[in-house]
């Protein structure tokens, strides 16, 4: 199997069959690449990685069952030198930061996939790190921002889930005053006008995953 060992062996993980189909078609046009497996959620991704040990894993972030970020953490824990590239629809800087901290080597926005996917696969396979240009602007934009605390992110997630302060307080076992304080911090850190705006920003910047 000398031919296949020369090729870059790829695992594609995305819950959308149309996207997986597109990736498979594109990779099939490349003589130096081969798609060895596909997965539609994080759990399958871990199994398939174990079974095939691909050179590159393309991992969507928003997936049911086990999301991409958790899958990346799990795979990197088991295979520390796994080379994983994140594919995502969103330009959220916070989400990108988390993925990179979890050990992703590449971060691609899906709207640039058709142009950048093949080059990024080769670059990451060669040991480089690769981030979509748009994404790096986004990261730079908020690099100096005051990051939200974990507690604030928890509150923000519940706000986006349509919960009122009182319910949030009950769910997090804190007082309503504490929640109000956190909401105030969130609004100021995100530069949001109100709760709805904060929730929108949170989704846009990938602070929370709304699935």
């Amino acid at each position: 199997m000398s031919v296949s060992s020369d090729r870059i062996r790829i695992l594609s993980v995305d819950d959308h069959p149309v996207v997986r189909g597109g990736i498979a078609t594109l990779i099939a046009t490349q003589p130096d690449m081969t798609l060895v497996a596909e997965a539609s959620n994080g759990r399958e991704a871990i199994e398939q990685f174990r079974r095939h040990r691909p050179d590159i894993g393309l991992v969507d972030l928003q997936m049911p069952d086990l999301n991409g970020l958790d899958a990346i953490v799990a795979i990197r824990a088991e295979f520390p030198d796994a080379r994983l590239i994140v594919l995502t629809t969103y330009e959220g800087d916070v989400q990108a930061l988390r993925a990179l901290q979890a050990g992703a080597r590449g971060y691609l926005l899906k709207n640039a996939l058709y142009k950048e996917l093949l080059d990024t696969i080769r670059a990451v396979h060669a040991g480089k790190k690769a981030i979509s240009p748009e994404m790096s602007y986004e990261l730079a934009e908020h690099a100096m921002d005051d990051a939200l605390t974990t507690a604030e992110v928890d509150v923000l997630r519940l706000i986006a889930g349509g919960k009122a302060n009182k319910e949030i307080a009950d769910l997090l076992s804190v007082t309503e005053a504490t929640v109000k304080g956190r909401v105030k911090n969130i609004l100021s850190k995100l530069g949001a006008d109100d709760r709805t705006h904060a929730a929108m920003i949170a989704v846009k910047r990938g602070i929370i995953d709304w699935r």
Binding site: H16, V18, G21, G22, T25, A28, Q30, N111, L113, Y114
Partner: peptide, 17 residues
């Protein structure tokens, strides 16, 4: 969005071959 991205990937593949 997902569908269009999938379609774009196929277009790109068609352009290449």
């Amino acid at each position: 969005l997902q569908s269009f991205q999938g379609v774009l990937l196929r277009f790109q593949a068609a352009v290449i071959v």
